[in-house]
Design a protein around this nucleic acid. Structure first.
Lengths: 181, 181
DNA sequence: TCGATCATGTAACAGGTTACATGATTTT
DNA sequence: AAAATCATGTAACCTGTTACATGATCGA
């Protein structure tokens, strides 16, 4: 249900095509949701079939038609229901943590590569966050409550990322020390 | 593949049945992995079919037989391969963040309920972490490197949970202030 | 000319959830 | 007497990934 709900939220803010939504997932919603284009097109079509969305086909010269989706009344109702009911806790799945349980057997260079690669990914993530922040939340003090709420999610994303980075640095440091001594 | 890898790791440390693994997922591996019993039984059977595991059936009087699984040579090799190759980044999926993008429309009491329920879950999680720490990592200074590694994962789990809790507190506080003023 | 961007999809498969099913033993 | 624990599974379904497919335009 969550992908549906995310689509309802973003299409309610602004109607758009599958491709548009894909761009939003890469930009302003990067810390909220990601999905492949295949998944989007399939789900949008199903939601139209279920009466939650309607779409207008915009013919374009020399390009495939854009299908611009927007919420129907049923879509609005479905969104309201989803908002009102609490989320269930998401299950824990940390393959990286599992590797730590085989520390002796995990090749030392693979350990370092894994952690430095993760470091690089997280650093890139922080850059994405900074870009979003600059574009949408340049002046936090002057945000309305409705604008302030999504800004909070960015802040948490940043903090969690920094928590990870601090931890990786410590683990790498400890690993280095043991190999130098 | 990750569930397979997690099963290989835990069964390498100590052979066990599907039911045993389920208990590990609730106790010492609570911050690493969770899966339903249905998924476990299916996957263990498939892994046996693929030659990664072998099992001995232990008949028990008046109870269903226990099937105790252990790694085959192929299982050990598969685990080594998995350890050597780096993980791919896991996709972002935060349904809670999505709700924040519909802040105005999200009923105020639902907001508070959602966040306090999450608070309670996270607090419970910290208790679980503390229990694991007490049982397995009572004296961090005297741990061997192999024991120290899984201890690190617990530390990160704790820090991330506290980061979440701090953020929730701030958001709740801000929400309260606006309604009092 | 090569790769990126725009714009959509189909099909097969893998991974995860929910519902249903059984049945004895132990604890409250 | 009811609920939790021990111990296993099947079947249907939903969600997400990977591979394949098309075809024009635009910038390097």
């Amino acid at each position: 249900m969550s992908l549906r709900a995310v689509l309802l939220i973003t299409l309610q803010r602004e109607p758009g095509s599958g491709y548009d939504i894909l761009q939003r997932f890469k930009a302003g919603l990067a810390h909220v949701w990601q999905a492949s284009h295949q998944q989007l097109y399939r789900e949008l079509d199903r939601m139209r079939g279920d009466g939650l969305l309607a779409c207008e086909t915009m013919p374009q010269s020399e390009r495939p038609d854009r299908k611009v989706y927007h919420l129907t009344d049923a879509g609005h109702r479905a969104l309201d229901e989803w908002l009102a009911e609490p989320l269930t806790a998401s299950p824990v799945r940390q393959p990286l943590f599992a590797k730590f349980f085989a520390w002796e057997q995990w090749p030392a260079d693979a350990r370092r590569d894994e952690l430095t690669a993760l470091q690089a990914q997280l650093a890139k993530r922080l850059v994405v966050y900074a870009t979003i922040e600059k574009q949408w939340f340049a002046d936090p003090a002057s945000l309305t409550p409705a604008e302030r709420a999504p800004w909070h999610t960015l802040r948490l994303g940043k903090r969690l990322t920094k928590t990870w980075l601090g931890w990786i640095e410590e683990v790498l440091e400890e690993d280095r020390e043991r190999h130098v001594d």
